[in-house]
Design a binder for these strands. Structure first.
Lengths: 175, 175
DNA sequence: GGAGTATGAATGAATG
DNA sequence: CATTCATTCATACTCC
């Protein structure tokens, strides 16, 4: 990630062949740094969803640096793409406010605040159903539970405002 | 990827937590006791895998107590759930004979955790209970995408005759 | 102050 | 493509 050490020297690269059963638990692919570098370069170049052919070729090339299979390349791109998207989505809605240093409330008071407006909403998760047929004619590819509207922005919760009723219920009411 | 960025670029400038990791340097998120408390309460309530927007909301709330990002919440739940499962599995396998190996563990933390887990714990969220398939039943769903036919050959490197040495050059021209 | 542990972070491997 | 699980790495913390 960003602020982490750059000195992670894993013992990767150990794809030794044979060597008597390889006591090492070669459960999953452990890419070498060269392999990672090449893959990252490819990604940076713009490659996001390589075709089967491309995967084959990449795998062949990378096999020079160590054991690798096509599915590893496939998964690598899948994961890399998904995680970059995820990270972007999070950071987008994350940092804006750093109001976290004015006056520290006690834990009980905070919990009380979380209970504000104990709506009988009872959000049990997995029910993100809400009509979105208002704009845009529903394209066939509009299915998917894309509840995560990318333009999800500020959520005003009145952090430091009126609050009483210091119960320790904490029913996730703010969710 | 950008995992090669020096050391701490991040400073968790004082938000003097109630206790816990105050005074820590920078590097990785060090939750305050209040944050941990709230997260644990949420977990106890039954929340195990919060959705993206739930994560964001939780993060927003917890940011009052100190620096926090969405990914921290994400990882927290991920780890907490995984380790509880891991622990449970370990205990399950670890009980071949009913020896009171309680003396060996001798840790109040362990006891506390046992006490914690044995709680009824109603999961109010997409519980995938129903261990119908928990008994092997090797219904092979390992379809392995389209890469079951991996042409990877261990002895034929240098397919394109273009690399002969890990020079990291690799112009990506083979695509 | 080093061993052992708790835990944050990362990622490979899936599944739907 | 979104989400999840398992495993591992890295580090903060605790206790001799």
């Amino acid at each position: 990630m960003d602020e982490v050490s750059g000195f992670c020297i894993k013992q990767r690269g150990g794809y030794g062949g044979g060597s008597g059963g390889t006591g090492t638990k070669c459960g999953r692919w452990n890419p070498t740094t060269e392999q990672v570098k090449v893959l990252t370069d490819l990604f940076r170049t713009g490659l996001r969803t390589p075709s089967t052919d491309q995967i084959q070729k990449i795998s062949s090339q990378l096999s020079f640096y160590g054991k690798i299979e096509s599915k590893n390349v496939f998964y690598w791109f899948q994961n890399h793409k998904a995680r970059e998207r995820q990270k972007r989505r999070r950071v987008l809605v994350d940092e804006p406010n750093d109001f976290h240093h004015q006056d520290k409330l006690s834990s009980t008071k905070y919990l009380a605040e979380l209970n504000h407006i104990s709506e009988p909403e009872r959000v049990l998760e997995t029910l993100q159903l809400f009509p979105l047929n208002s704009f845009r004619e529903p394209v066939e590819s509009e299915k998917r539970r894309l509840f995560a509207n990318d333009y999800y922005k500020e959520n005003s919760y009145n952090i430091g405002t009126q609050m009483d009723h210091p119960t320790l219920d904490l029913r996730l009411s703010f969710l």
